[in-house]
């Protein structure tokens, strides 16, 4: 099975300013909103293909390096300062919260995974997507990477690029079946993966590594 990319999108803070006044996003974190917007762009680019039925059967794999660290911090800080444990902060604090939000918003009922790795997250997401597609557990799979850092982290090291990137994936055979243009081929992915930027380990700094993620780099080619 050869996995190909048929849609891609990237979202940054400036793309999601209007969401803050919308009811559906009143409890959404920054990561959730960025991912929603990037998904919206990817889904809209193939609106005829991504019907509610196809979305229901799709897979979704999401990576974030820090996860919902902002909500975690909010929850723990409130607990430490006031002894108050805030339910909405907790509901939003798990790494999985971002993924659960997206699945609900897009009605995705297929296989949904959350992965977490600061330097290889995108690679893992693509590998899991390929595994699921190869087993025909879904016809389409959305690969997502997202990173934001708490405002308190903008210290001496500065704030590097934050955002969300999405790739819509399927097999070469599925792309042919629906007459979809292949935007990125398996060879493209291999080449991009081989050009992995060197990230210093142990992981130092509190910076977003979004720009280095494989999904971001692939999506950037197309957006």
């Amino acid at each position: 099975m050869k996995m190909v990319v048929v849609a891609a999108a990237v979202s940054h803070d400036e793309d999601v300013k209007s969401y803050v006044t919308q009811a559906a996003f009143r409890k959404a974190s920054r990561k959730m909103t960025l991912c929603f917007d990037a998904m919206k762009k990817a889904v809209s680019s193939l609106a005829d293909i991504f019907t509610p039925e196809r979305l229901a059967a799709a897979g979704l794999i999401l990576n974030s390096g820090f996860g919902e660290i902002e909500a975690t911090g909010g929850f723990l800080k409130g607990l430490a300062e006031n002894g108050v444990a805030r339910p909405i902060f907790f509901q939003n604090s798990l790494h999985n919260s971002t993924t659960g939000f997206l699945a609900i918003q897009y009605g995705i009922q297929g296989p949904v995974f959350t992965v977490n790795h600061r330097t290889r997250g995108g690679d893992e997401v693509l590998d899991i997507s390929e595994t699921l597609l190869a087993d025909s557990l879904c016809e389409f799979c959305f690969a997502v990477t997202v990173e934001t850092v708490p405002p308190e982290f903008s210290g001496p090291t500065g704030v590097d690029r934050e955002g969300a990137a999405v790739l819509a994936l399927c097999s070469e055979a599925t792309a042919a079946k629906y007459g979809l243009k292949v935007l990125i081929t398996p060879d493209d992915v291999l080449k991009e993966s081989a050009h992995h930027p060197r990230i210093e380990l142990p992981l130092t700094g509190l910076k977003s590594l979004f720009r280095y993620d494989l999904i971001t780099r692939l999506a950037d080619r197309l957006t």
Binding site: G67, L94, H95, N96, T99, V112, F113, T114, V115, N116, H117, E124, D127, I128
Partner: peptide
């Protein structure tokens, strides 16, 4: 060499 970290909460 082939690794993955799954954090899908209770079903991970």
């Amino acid at each position: 060499s082939k690794t993955a970290l799954i954090s899908s909460a209770c079903s991970a």
